[in-house]
Design a protein around this nucleic acid. Sequence first.
DNA 1: AAGACAATACCAACCAGTCGGTATGTCAAT
DNA 2: ATTGACATACCGACTGGTTGGTATTGTCTT
Lengths: 207, 207
Amino acid sequence: MKDGQSQATRRAPRGSARARLIAAARDLVRRKGFAATSVDELCAAAGVTKGAFFHHFASKEGLGVALIEDWTETTGAMFAAHPYNAAADPFDRLIAYIELRRTLLSMPLPEFTCVAGTTVQEVFDTSAAMREAARNSLASGAGHVRAHLEAALAAHPVPGVTAESLARQFQVAVQGGIILAKAENDARPAREALDHLERYLRLLFGR
Amino acid sequence: MKDGQSQATRRAPRGSARARLIAAARDLVRRKGFAATSVDELCAAAGVTKGAFFHHFASKEGLGVALIEDWTETTGAMFAAHPYNAAADPFDRLIAYIELRRTLLSMPLPEFTCVAGTTVQEVFDTSAAMREAARNSLASGAGHVRAHLEAALAAHPVPGVTAESLARQFQVAVQGGIILAKAENDARPAREALDHLERYLRLLFGR
DNA sequence: AAGACAATACCAACCAGTCGGTATGTCAAT
DNA sequence: ATTGACATACCGACTGGTTGGTATTGTCTT
């Protein structure tokens, strides 16, 4: 009788408020940026009240840090689990990684924007905590390809090129591509950035 | 007697309010982002009242559009006037352009961030007018190198590579480098992004 | 019973934008 | 060379609504 069902659809199950807030933040921050997203908006989107918000996060900035940390884990798990890691040749794994990033670009624009890259642009000078979380996130993202790059460079050294720096260039191509895609309102420039990255790699490794 | 001097230092000369507001916006928006910069803050920084603000701009968004358009003109004039255009060989001009961008990176971080690239990240989905201004700004920036690229490609064609797309990759390297620099709070990753771009160019053109 | 979790009401500060008014400059007719 | 009509540039108090954050109370789970 107690209309438990409508209650359940209307209100999220207890204990999920934190996760729901982070999910809502991921959506809204990608579309509108961090500063332009208000706490009230976040609560409404998550189906949660303000009391719940400030129970789980000390401040809006706290939510921002948690959002980026969650992003680091989520994307990290996704890349780690992906079959692109299976290829025997490290160079093939790099090409497969780029191909994987290409397929991600077929999603709608707000859904392939990088949470860390977007927010750090806004807050790098106003929130040290969020900047540090973003730095860690981008470094972690570069870490996924660095291992493959080290193996590839061991088999085919390139003078003046380190795995560390080349891994960062992957991030540069991805982040820069996203900016151009946003400006053009079209994923194509981001896809072309990956094409150039792949061509660069092939030239470096003589493939 | 009439303390005309203190009057002059206390208040900007008539007619300069618009330019002062744009200059203040360039500073503040680079450091804090567009959404986090309030109109009051802008007015205070420009030494101007709110009445003056809304006399010159219909809205905060209007100031945003004017800011990006001004940025397009300013940077365009700067690159056009620079001696890097002097080299006879188009390839040398491209290398000189990259070198010019490298020297820009010796400034403090907020001063080498691209106004168009930063703001479009925030407002690409919430302000069509600003996104369009940013698109135009980035396209204009790519246009500066496209001419040199066309000449270089005419002398040394590279299959599958157009001047248009390669010019955009210059923007990708610059914008992506800025994001990493912000995250690391250090210009070095941006400089390395230019190094990789230069190496890519040399490989493409066999230099 | 006790603590974790969440709902509601509330607050001072701040937000973008408005509006009636004034200062300054322009130009044509006197 | 004055005058006066008009436009531009600017001023700053004000408004309705929103902001991030708090205080208090209630309700689940163990």
